[in-house]
Design a protein around this nucleic acid. Structure first.
Lengths: 146, 146
DNA sequence: CTGAAAAGAGACATGGCTGTCTTTTATGGC
DNA sequence: GCCATAAAAGACAGCCATGTCTCTTTTCAG
């Protein structure tokens, strides 16, 4: 829960490229959008930011498209989340009280902080490669079936 | 993280009424809005839904305002969250894949499910009374200091 | 060098959450 | 009954995430 659609598109896009890159070819935004049932131009903008961040490569022109690079597989999920959603959610009070901290906690502070830190830890430690090598085989169907 | 401003307003509003109700009086939306530094009419709409849900009482006219009732203190946080944000976030896939479940999990399914269930459990078990009786004294300052 | 292919960039539309303001309804005191 | 008070209800504006569409730029093939 809790994350933007953009994050979902980014992750599914990267996973798709990584999966078909085992076939050692570039993947067009058009193909990704069709296979993942995602709006093409919106996806393209997100993929563009993923490329700028260095998690994927892209090439224009014929035979162009997106491809994995040396950073792709070792990128933790938090890198994608930072691109699409930012990190503010992990640093701000649930009740949006700026003065809330462990010294002056809001009523929900300690209720939330463990949960939030667990999630941040998961997203910091889990990489694209980890997702691809999960026991329950991750295949295209697991990111394409809307 | 993750919840709407409305939820924060609702919770802080209920807590404020509960706190000053120890003085056995009704509390006006105007006072709540001023003390919590929250937009009055927007708060009023949210409080209205809280009243409809039965978590608070309200009376119009002179000497009117909001007051606690028999359900207020024993209400779990999830009741407020359901009013303001709905429950969908606990039942839908992070990647918004409708077919995602433990039989056909998306790549993030098992990463998210424990975290989500922990949070849901916390919000289902923690009541308004629990928040008011936390060890670190919850006072008006802890919900008013923006 | 030219044309086609594909990413990149930007303008615009939509919907929901947030916020402001005005009007209506209900209530208590005189 | 009248008036003041306060919640309830509704109209409207702004912002942001999402989504659509068009135009520009880059690159490859021949």
């Amino acid at each position: 829960m809790f994350f933007s659609k953009s994050f979902g598109y980014a992750l599914r896009g990267v996973l798709y490229v990584a999966l078909v890159s085992e076939e050692n070819r570039r993947v067009q935004a058009d193909e990704i959008a069709k296979r993942l049932a995602v709006p093409k131009h919106f996806l393209a903008k997100i993929m563009n930011r993923v490329v700028k961040e260095g998690i994927l490569d892209s090439t224009k022109g014929p035979y162009g498209g997106f491809s994995v690079n040396g950073e792709t597989l070792s990128s933790p999920l938090i890198r994608l989340l930072r691109i699409t959603d930012g990190m503010e959610q992990f640093n701000t009070c649930v009740l949006k009280l700026r003065k809330c901290n462990k010294i002056n906690p809001c009523p929900l502070h300690f209720l939330m902080v463990k949960n939030r830190d667990d999630l941040l830890k998961n997203f910091s430690q889990t990489t694209i490669a980890d997702l691809l090598s999960q026991e329950n085989k991750i295949g295209i169907q697991s990111i394409a079936t809307v």
